[in-house]
Write a protein that binds this DNA or RNA. Sequence first.
DNA 1: TACATCCTTCGTGTTACACGAAGGCAAGAG
DNA 2: CTCTTGCCTTCGTGTAACACGAAGGATGTA
Lengths: 146, 146
Amino acid sequence: MYTVKEVAKMLDLSEHAVRYYTDKGLIPSILRDQNNNRLFNEESVNWLIGVKILKQCGMSIEDIKTYAELSIKGDSTIQERYEIILRQRELALLQLQEAKSTVDYLEAKTNYYLNIIKGVIADSSNPAKWPLKYELNEVWDTIGAK
Amino acid sequence: MYTVKEVAKMLDLSEHAVRYYTDKGLIPSILRDQNNNRLFNEESVNWLIGVKILKQCGMSIEDIKTYAELSIKGDSTIQERYEIILRQRELALLQLQEAKSTVDYLEAKTNYYLNIIKGVIADSSNPAKWPLKYELNEVWDTIGAK
DNA sequence: TACATCCTTCGTGTTACACGAAGGCAAGAG
DNA sequence: CTCTTGCCTTCGTGTAACACGAAGGATGTA
């Protein structure tokens, strides 16, 4: 049996977050002691782990709750759960693509700055007047145009 | 000269977002007509493009504002801007790693469900009692353990 | 007994907008 | 010359997922 503080430390979550999850009904097996303090047994800890993982996958609290409720209902909901995970996977793939473009863009931008700092681009014409446009012309047009 | 509606459509932003950015001071060159309507010239549009890109890179409005203000100051701030972009690149790399793990996890989970649905795992012992733990034992322990 | 430490609930603050209300201005229809 | 339409404005509240702090109860120790 663990307290909020203990599970928070165990799972590297904030105590606020742990209370928030329990209050939102994401940990159905949560217990209370005689002073109304939250108590986590092994099952509750496992639920919390599941919630944490699905959150890291980008699922909203609402969706996680839906998914958890389906899990409780048992095998008859497996198809439905599968479809939720499928949709989430599609989202994750999109996010992966975006993360890649972002890294590419920022790499190009660091190189752009490195060149300026090293003096490779000696003539920075009129940067004070069009600072962002200047960068856009140099970097964004080549990278941001995909 | 473009109205809010026009730039919003041009850059695929919501009108709400465009007004929000101007109100936050991210578009210093923004103009107003005699009826106080926002008007965007080419410079303002370029600023807006820059803001949009940095937002996609995961920068907060505050950080974008800081960066924009440095840009206005001119060449003397190049080093500082470079360091901001460097830090942002580190963040982006982290996010890329997370995105990869998330995709991996969700791929494994879809396969897990596919196996169940295809009946490969015939004995689902006591899933109603430990639904999430069941999944955790099957999938998370292998993937989530990194 | 006093204090420190844990827990609780409750209420507000945060970010980056979304949304709707209420109203100003201009142009075309009748 | 009004009426409607359509754009724009500001202002105010709602949202997600917590963070944070206040106020207060129960417990343990000096």
